[in-house]
Simulated assay, not measured.
Amino acid sequence: METVVRRGRPGYDQRQVLEVAVQVFIEQGYDATSVATLATRLGLSKSALYHHFESKEALLEVALEEAIGSLEGVLREPDAKAGTARERLEHVLRGAVLVLVDKLPFVTLLLRVRGNSGVERAAVERRRAFDREVTALVRAAQKEGTVRDDLRASVATRLLFGMVNSIVEWYRPTGPEGAAELADDVLGVALDGLSKRG
C-alpha cells in the first residue's frame, strides 16, 4: 500500500506532526492512540491533521519507513559489501548503532510494533529480513575463522541486536557519550565476545 503524504497547511510543519505522533505512539501505544489524541497534543483540529497525513496508519507507515529504511540502507552501503565478513559485520553493527541514535524515537517505535496491522506486519517482516542478512554475515565470518563458531549464527545475531536494541531504553542524546563513541563501545563488547579464541 502506498501512503499518500499530503502537504500541510501554512504554519504547520509536517515533520513536527510526525515527530509528535511518534512520541505519542511510544507513550500510549499505537493501537491506544486516537486521531483525536494526536490532534489535541498538536493543538490541531482533526481535519487540520488530515491535511498533513491521510490517516493515523499513514503516520505510522512513514515513521516505520524512516527507521527500517535507514537500517536497510546500512546493508546497501559499500563497506557492508566489501572486505572480510568480519569487517562487513563490524560496519553493519556500527551503522545500526548510528541509525538508532540518529533516529532514536523512530527505531524505538519500530521495536515496539507487534504486527497488529498490515503496516506493522510489513515492518516486522522487514526487520526479520534485516536480521537474516546479519545472520548470513555472522555465518560468513564464522566460516572465514574471524569470529567464534561455537555459537549458532542466528543466536549470535539475536544476542548482538538484543544489546544494540537495548540502547533505546537508556541512551540519551544529551548525555556524555556521542553516537560514534557508543558505536565503538558496542563493537568492543560485541565483537570481543565473538572473537575466535585461540
Rank of each mutant, 00 (worst) to 15 (best):
S55Y: 13
L104K: 04
E61L: 14
L60R: 00
R41F: 12
A82C: 10
L111R: 00
K46P: 08
Q16E: 15
R88I: 07
G188F: 09
S154V: 08
R132V: 05
R126T: 03
V138K: 00
T3Q: 06
Y30V: 15
G8L: 02
R76H: 13
L182P: 14
G69K: 06
D184G: 11
T33S: 06
N116P: 07
G69S: 13
D79W: 05
L49T: 05
R88K: 10
L137G: 13
E27C: 14
R86Q: 07
G11R: 03
T174M: 09
V189T: 14
A58P: 13
A156D: 05
P10E: 08
L44S: 11
R121G: 10
G73H: 02
K196V: 14
R148C: 15
G43A: 05
S195N: 06
R126W: 08
P78L: 12
Y12H: 10
F25N: 10
G118V: 10
L75A: 15
L111G: 12
V138A: 10
A183I: 00
V22P: 04
E27W: 12
D149M: 04
H52G: 08
V35A: 12
P176E: 00
E57M: 00
R112H: 13
L160H: 09
L191G: 03
Q23N: 02
Q16V: 13
K56Q: 03
A129V: 08
L109W: 00
A179K: 02
A48W: 05
V164M: 05
L71E: 00
N165Y: 01
P173L: 06
K46A: 08
V22C: 11
V74F: 01
R126A: 11
S70Q: 07
Y50D: 11
V92I: 00
A153D: 03
A80K: 05
V113L: 13
R114H: 15
T84I: 11
T33K: 03
D192M: 14
